[in-house]
Design a protein around this nucleic acid. Structure first.
Lengths: 168, 168
DNA sequence: CCTTAACGGGTGACGTGTCACCAATATTCC
DNA sequence: GGAATATTGGTGACACGTCACCCGTTAAGG
């Protein structure tokens, strides 16, 4: 990170981040990338599923329902439409999910866990939660976790205000 | 997000996150994904470069040097080795970077900004910084930015302790 | 020295995420 | 009731990130 701070004098002041801003912003970026990398690697190694798989599987399992519509899963994970479609296709072809015809709305599709999918998420959950704790939750004091939660809430609120886009 | 909290009763308590933990963890994940998506989209639309391009270009520009070795850039951005190689290849083929032979260490390579690369980062920097401010830095109170910086520092410290891996 | 290990960097394949675009069904509004 | 419109979901192409693995060079250790 140190090369990033060298020779700032040349550029317009207002175009650059203050030291505090830079620490917070680059810290956030690198923390998230490193966490993602570590968790992803270990989840694949131990359970043969990816973080994206985990997000979909746990959404379905936590719903406590037999099946969910695609757009319901989408609302839960907050992904782009096509990202979820592709993800479901991959997981279906690997036997983790099943697509089921929807008669109430014939445009739609029901998504359900297969037995294999349920087994996968049940096998993965405890270890993954433990790793999230070890890498993150147990490292950060509870008061700071509260603050982080409130930070993300206000940031996400701000992002939704410019909801001009096509399908976010 | 609400489907995630339904019907938690069935699963082992210790395997699940508390409410505070869940708000912090899922908040972090979604905030980072949404920020990345928005910033990426706007950078591509306005400047035709990606966030990864931006990271490499700004590292080189901020260094204030004519060229950097690949492993120096890598230390700055904290990426996997091959990720940076691929990124440099793509950017070189698009004319943003140049690979230059290294005589001091004939295994190595110098990476330098081309004129086009310098123009790209200079064009992108102010707008990108402004968007980071608008989406994130200005939304979060300064005291919370400090806390966030300290959070990421301790988390990253923790991650580096289990540096057993091959090439992280 | 000369062997062995470590370093610096790269390749190809594959899974992931986004974009532009499409198909089909539901809904709205006259 | 029929045309415009929104909703639900999907496809194919392409850029990105990781893994397994490779090559050439430098440094270490006998």
């Amino acid at each position: 990170m140190s090369p990033l701070v060298a020779r700032l004098g040349r550029v317009n002041e207002a175009e650059l981040l203050t030291d505090r801003e830079r620490r917070a912003w680059y810290g956030l970026l690198t923390m998230q990338e490193d966490l993602h990398r570590h968790l992803s690697r270990e989840l694949i190694r131990d359970c043969s599923i990816t973080l994206s798989d985990f997000a979909v599987l746990s959404t379905l399992q936590m719903s406590g329902r037999a099946a969910m519509r695609v757009h319901e899963v989408r609302a839960a994970v907050r992904w782009e439409k096509t990202r979820l479609t592709h993800q479901i296709s991959r997981m279906t072809s690997r036997g983790l999910l099943a697509r089921i015809r929807c008669d109430e709305d014939r445009r739609g599709v029901w998504i359900a866990l297969t037995d294999e999918g349920r087994a996968a998420i049940e096998a993965a959950l405890p270890g993954h939660v433990a790793r999230v704790r070890a890498m993150f939750l147990d490292v950060v004091p509870p008061k700071h976790l509260e603050i982080l939660a409130s930070i993300s809430e206000s940031v996400l609120e701000g992002l939704e205000e410019d909801a001009d886009d096509t399908g976010s």
